[in-house]
Simulated assay, not measured.
Amino acid sequence: MTRGRLLIFIGVLFIVSAILHVMPLWIVVLAPIWSTPVKVAGIVILCVGALAMPILMIFGHGQKRDLPALIGDVWLGAVWQFFVWSVICEFVGFIAWAFGADHGARERYVALACVVIVAGLLAGGAITALGRVGIRHVTIRLDRLPQEFDGRTIAHITDTHLSLALGERWMTRIVQQVNSLSPDIVCHTGDLADGDVARRTDAVSALGEIRAPLGRFYITGNHEYLSDAAYWVAHMRKLGWTVLQNAHAMVRIGEANLAMVGINDLTAPGNDAASDRPDIDKAVQGIPAGTRTVLLAHQPKQVRDAVHQELDLQLSGHTHGGQIWPFHYLVRAEQGALSGLSRPGPSTQLYISRGTGFWGPPFRIGAPPEIALITLRRA
């Protein structure tokens, strides 16, 4: 990034931070009739937060410093919810005023409602994000699936985003959950870890303990290209995982075959062997006609490649199911779908996981994490 673009980016970050803090400042602190010490404390907290949040995120994420990044992310999640709910509560308060509610009482009730709602959502969102990950059982029927694969299972994990908050203990717990399902195949569809590679290696290494008799398959997501994609590719291979980079691998049961296909993320820069641009034509080259196919692609919108090649099933992550409402609507608009099973093509199905971990703010509101256990069935 050039110096000019960097300055523009930093400037935009501070402007966005100011906007996010203005509404809570007005609705929660200034408009209600509070005592002077309460108002002064609220003004100081929000003004300091508006300046500190971008600095913490730039220093934390930009310099790969765990603690500043985590503090900045927590504040971002909190102030985003305060921004959203201050707008909603003010709208409801305006309706109450239109029906004759006392102005002073209305302002206080709006502020208190906003604080109570946000506090509850953040507490619940933190428990959901950091607690036990749920198992999502999904049955997918494929035309002409060989009898030998009928009833076989695929455990799908994605977006683990290993970090200071999601470390080795958390990853070990995920591995234990996956192994308890006794899947035939395990897939990880990218965004393995965030931050300093040296700090995440031990946590990622827990993935070496996952058991899957028919194979373990991994592809890169966009976040691998923010750290060291080549390192993670080499490390996952060292752990015994098959890394699919614009390539496929055949899973065989007797004479029956299932092709596991993987393509790189759309953000791959193409500057080294681990960072080739996504190439679906290269990935499927050599697959015998009539073979059923499962494509691993990090972003759901890469399904256009699957439809073009008439592949049977695509597994994706990336969306986190929106992670924190109301981001759901923005993510759906950008990716075309949010989570779950859909059929974007005549012969192509798409399953989008809500993700196993989280990125940024340690909250999940309206989008619980998941480990998907997919059972393949003959249509």
Rank of each mutant, 00 (worst) to 15 (best):
A198V: 04
G317C: 11
P368S: 02
V204F: 01
A111P: 14
V331S: 12
Y225K: 11
A105M: 08
R173I: 14
S227P: 11
R292L: 03
I219Y: 08
F99A: 15
W85T: 09
I135C: 12
L25P: 12
V40K: 11
Y329G: 12
N246S: 09
V84L: 04
L56C: 14
A274N: 09
T153N: 06
N179R: 02
A273R: 07
V110F: 00
L258V: 14
Y329K: 14
A273H: 06
T375A: 02
G4A: 08
A229V: 08
D281L: 05
V28E: 06
G42T: 08
Q81P: 07
W232V: 15
W359I: 12
N264P: 07
A247L: 07
R364W: 02
P183G: 11
G360T: 05
E168I: 15
W359M: 15
I45T: 15
L338K: 10
L376H: 04
L330W: 10
L130V: 12
I157V: 11
A337E: 12
I95M: 02
Q335Y: 05
L164W: 03
M250R: 03
C89G: 02
P68V: 00
D305V: 05
L67V: 14
L142Y: 03
N246E: 01
A372W: 00
R141C: 05
D150M: 06
V186F: 02
R173Q: 13
V38N: 13
L313Q: 08
V116T: 06
L295H: 03
R364Y: 02
A297C: 07
L166N: 04
Y109S: 01
I71A: 10
E90N: 04
G11T: 10
A119Y: 01
V261T: 13
T375W: 00
G270W: 01
I127C: 15
A50S: 12
D143C: 13
R343W: 04
F327L: 10
E310L: 15
I287F: 07
P183Q: 04
Y225T: 09
L145C: 15
R252A: 05
I210G: 13
A101F: 00
Q147C: 13
L56S: 07
N246I: 00
D184E: 01
